[in-house]
Design a protein around this nucleic acid. Sequence first.
DNA 1: GATTTCATGTAAGACGTTACATGATTCA
DNA 2: TGAATCATGTAACGTCTTACATGAAATC
Lengths: 183, 183
Amino acid sequence: MTLPASPYVVLGLIAKKPGSGYDTAAFADRSVRYFWPISRTQVYSELPRLEELGWITGTLVPQDRYPDKRVYQPTPTGLRALRDWLDVPAPRQRIQDVVLRTFFGAYMSSQRLAEQLAEYRQQAEKLRAELLAIVEHLDAKGLDHSRVLTQATARYGVLQAEATIAWTTETQALLEPPQGQAG
Amino acid sequence: MTLPASPYVVLGLIAKKPGSGYDTAAFADRSVRYFWPISRTQVYSELPRLEELGWITGTLVPQDRYPDKRVYQPTPTGLRALRDWLDVPAPRQRIQDVVLRTFFGAYMSSQRLAEQLAEYRQQAEKLRAELLAIVEHLDAKGLDHSRVLTQATARYGVLQAEATIAWTTETQALLEPPQGQAG
DNA sequence: GATTTCATGTAAGACGTTACATGATTCA
DNA sequence: TGAATCATGTAACGTCTTACATGAAATC
């Protein structure tokens, strides 16, 4: 039984900020949404599942002005499951997977995060080369209107890859042990 | 009845290069895959649907060495449906939607493509500002290990947005009517 | 007074992925 | 001779989205 990323995203959010389904969805919407969109109903459907796994526990909190809510917090088992999942690179590691791990970086080994950043940076460099080859190939064939546009889409990939390379580089620097300045 | 993007992607690929399901999946894998991944089985499942809509027609081609195949090509109705769909911005226009329209740009009005590029560029600029605000907000709160990593994920969005802005700018330039050089 | 927002969820169904299936051909 | 690839699909299933549902509070 291997879970998709979404339950771990919800688990991680609950770990960072315990709360109700509504709270967690709102939190997602101002944090991971930018690189990992997750809908409110998706959050709701993951919660019972995580509770059955024993990774979070919910407590019913009665309210006057609003419907009663169920507030969740992570269990020690849940935190371990989160860490284990974060430490292992995603099956088909995409940039979002690495960004997600960076966001939950406090729950994982810095060593592992650094490794994943390095690995993805290489992937991005390879991708960039691949796309540049496509751009040149189209140049060689001659650029009519249609090919100009096709080439533009390849250029999109190139710029994308370059942004990714720049980001992994600057993020790797953050993880490096601070260099003591000798006097 | 409103269709998702996938059937239109398959329709567009068939328009660009008529062929079998296998051919189309292979074509997708060396073109739109970079910004719009679509699986082989997904392609297969869209084909009968597109044929029922009268947007493509399939002809059985018997083969000796391999299983018989069904080769598809677009109908005039299909090409009109494709154009109509491309001309209207996606409900929640994401960058991929615009890249997709650029890829199929030969089937749509250049005017409309230019509009969508301009619109998305503005979106990206707004997003960049939003993310920069988050970066600064975290600076103001003080940067512990966890916040440094959270900030890094916001930085990812910033670099991403900047790449997008750069791409829309350079692609817009391609669509501008060539300036005649007087002299 | 009507509409929007807050706060909480449930239910249905489309979408897309992973696994299964087949048989010939080429490569090691 | 065995494994991998080509070429064609089908079937099952889980994920995720869209629509539905409720009622109080705030806003216009």
